[in-house]
């Protein structure tokens, strides 16, 4: 017998790993991905594959040749960043723009801060916002949803329902279409149904807790409700309309709940969600962009360290 091993307790481990958690998120994203492929066809496929592969490649290159440290692309986090980035892009975006987005997401937003666990901002969103600011035209023309669309760059475009708020269109799809995702928009954000299925899966697998998504959606619902029912002429979007359109569900369920950039305890999460909800509505209703979820999440990402410092979990035996 070899020498006995001594280590501090505990001597057993749950067996949970980072890649396990990432795989869980992938599975949760699957319904939304299928919906994206259904509505946007070939373009969605090309963009998602490009984004995932380029994110993996950039992470590998940086870890291997710049940091000269261990390569950890197998943990799935880079691939997840790629997929989430793709979910936030319109399906008729040229490949080279997607690759630039991946480079910004992985190279600037993630690796330059020290890699997994150290990035203050959600990498996929940084990539997306970078593209939105750099290529506003390409980033704000969305193809019309056509089942299994074989067209890519030349797909017929359509405005998103959110443009309604800015007075660009007057007719909105029916609530059912909004719920199923039959509308213009980014690849992963259109189908509320698919995203909710993913949310339920994440909750069952205990990968995330309910606090952030529910807090965001509740805040948006209440805030837009107050606006709409006090002055329906000016604020035409109903609360349900706000919840079902744009990236609010994708953002609340998958982007805001990113482990690294969200607060560390339930109370902080609720506050964080509240902040995202409020900022999103402010941008949507009063700002010049039709959609504000990405900005809202990035802004609250910046507040996360502060929230962690001042909002503490309920301690055992404390009076409250």
């Amino acid at each position: 017998m070899d020498k006995l091993i001594i280590s501090p307790s505990p001597h057993v481990h749950s067996g949970d790993t980072i890649s396990n958690k990432m795989i869980g998120v992938f599975i949760a994203l699957l319904p939304a991905y299928v919906a994206g492929l259904y509505f946007f066809g070939l373009g969605a496929l090309i963009i998602s594959v490009t984004a995932v592969l380029s994110c993996l490649l950039f992470e590998y290159l940086i870890q291997r040749f710049i940091l000269k440290g261990p390569v950890t692309i197998t943990d799935g986090s880079a691939a997840l960043t790629g997929l989430l980035l793709a979910f936030n892009l319109p399906s008729n975006l040229p490949v080279w723009i997607v690759i630039i987005g991946s480079l910004v997401a992985i190279g600037i937003a993630k690796m330059s801060f020290g890699g997994l666990g150290n990035n203050p901002f959600n990498p996929a969103l940084v990539g997306r916002v970078f593209l939105l600011i750099s290529f506003p035209a390409q980033m704000t023309t969305w193809p019309k949803p056509v089942p299994w669309n074989p067209a890519y760059l030349d797909a017929v475009t359509a405005a998103t329902p959110l443009a309604l708020l800015k007075g660009q269109i007057t007719e909105i799809p029916s609530a059912l279409n909004l719920f199923l995702g039959n509308m213009g928009g980014s690849i992963g954000e259109v189908s509320a149904l698919a995203l909710l299925i993913g949310f339920i899966y994440l909750l069952i697998r205990k990968i995330i807790t309910w606090h952030i998504p529910v807090s965001i959606l509740f805040t948006v619902f209440v805030f837009t409700g107050i606006l709409h029912y006090t002055n329906p002429e000016t604020y035409i979007g109903t609360p349900v309309f706000h919840l079902l359109t744009g990236g609010i569900l994708l953002g609340a369920i998958f982007m805001a709940t990113d482990y690294v950039t969200s607060p560390m305890n339930p109370r902080g999460m609720l506050l964080y969600g509240l902040g995202i909800g409020v900022i999103t509505v402010l941008i949507r209703v009063f700002g010049s962009y039709p959609e504000g979820v990405s900005f809202a999440i990035l802004i609250m990402n910046a507040f996360t360290p502060l929230i962690n410092k001042y909002i503490k979990p309920k301690r055992f035996g404390s009076p409250e």
Partner: peptide, 24 residues
Amino acid sequence: SARKQMQNCIRCTKCVVVCPMGLE
């Protein structure tokens, strides 16, 4: 018996959630 390789903290909040004393 052997411990597995330690990786970066991904701030998943698992430790905060399971702590029976409400610590971080």
